[in-house]
């Protein structure tokens, strides 16, 4: 695998994380518990989708510049294979709407269903805290495009983390019922947090090249932040040390299939449609 392929892979990991969490959060649109929080979540979803777009555009450009021979072995989806065979270039939409589940590289945490407000808040909090430290590092990337995305994202993520941290405290330190629910959500989602810090081959090579972030350095910072917020929220950190993983290698839970079925339906059924 060439170095270019690793940069493409890395870009797609970040883009898929952004698209999948953005889609999950956007499912709250029109269903928020109060109007103001409905708008807050929709704003956040758009931040994530905006980041996904920038990254997919960058990834599509990288893909189009690969040698024809290398393009054949990157995506398995039939639609993209056909485009490669025909010599067509691809764009951001093709990456979001035409790849199959096993081509997606998002971590499993982000495809977990909303279930209730507490699950949604806990999932966002775990990811926002990670993102905050991650983009602080990625800002220093030698890759100018990733560095620019990181700089813009950091402002958004700082707000996301503020929002989700406050809600964790509000629920944890709230009523008996809200405390029970957020603690339950934290317990259930805990096993999905470890994958954010696993360094796969792509992460390792990108770190060596000064392009990617050092996830090992982020982990203790993340843990410190989580502990501080949980202390305010009177939430216990779960004991479990065993962590789920697979998303970054394309092995997903059944939830991703349902997300893609909804997300990709229009482009799959009516190829190339616009509105």
């Amino acid at each position: 695998m060439s170095h270019k392929k690793f940069l493409l892979d890395y870009t797609l990991q970040l883009a898929d994380d952004a698209l999948i969490i953005g889609h999950r959060i956007s499912e709250w649109c029109g269903h928020g518990p109060v109007l103001e929080q409905d708008i807050a979540l929709t704003n956040t979803a758009l931040d994530h989708l905006g980041r996904a777009r920038s990254l997919y555009q960058y990834a599509a450009g990288q893909f189009n510049n690969l040698p024809a021979e290398e393009k054949k072995n990157i995506f398995t989806s039939v639609s993209l294979q056909q485009m490669v065979q025909a010599g067509d270039s691809i764009n951001e939409d093709d990456l979001a709407y035409l790849r199959d589940g096993w081509d997606f590289r998002n971590v499993l945490l982000l495809e977990q269903p909303n279930i209730d407000w507490a699950y949604t808040v806990a999932r966002s909090f775990f990811y926002d805290a990670f993102n905050y430290f991650f983009f602080s590092q990625l800002k220093l990337s030698k890759d100018e495009s990733l560095s620019a995305v990181a700089e813009k994202s950091l402002k958004e993520v700082t707000y996301h983390l503020r929002w989700s941290s406050e809600w964790v405290v509000r629920l944890g330190d709230g009523t008996e019922e809200s405390h029970k629910r957020i603690q339950h959500a934290v317990n259930e989602l805990w096993a999905y947090t470890g994958e954010m810090f696993t360094m796969n081959e792509t992460d390792t090579i990108m770190l060596q090249q000064g392009i990617g972030a050092n996830l090992g350095e982020i982990k203790p910072l993340w843990m410190e932040r989580v502990k501080a917020v949980f202390e305010d929220a009177t939430i216990n950190i779960p004991d479990g040390l065993w962590m789920q993983q697979g998303g970054k290698e394309g092995r997903h839970s059944e939830h991703l299939g349902y997300i893609l079925a909804e997300l990709q339906f229009m482009q799959r059924a009516y190829p190339g449609m616009e509105w």
């Binding site: 109007l35 103001e36 708008i39 807050a40 704003n43 406050e166 509000r170």
Partner: peptide, 20 residues
């Protein structure tokens, strides 16, 4: 105007509702 549980939430809600 808007609804919020406390001042912090009110500012955040205002940010999301009125300054998008």
């Amino acid at each position: 105007s808007l609804h919020a549980a406390d001042a912090e939430m009110a500012i955040e809600n205002a940010r999301d509702v009125y300054t998008r």
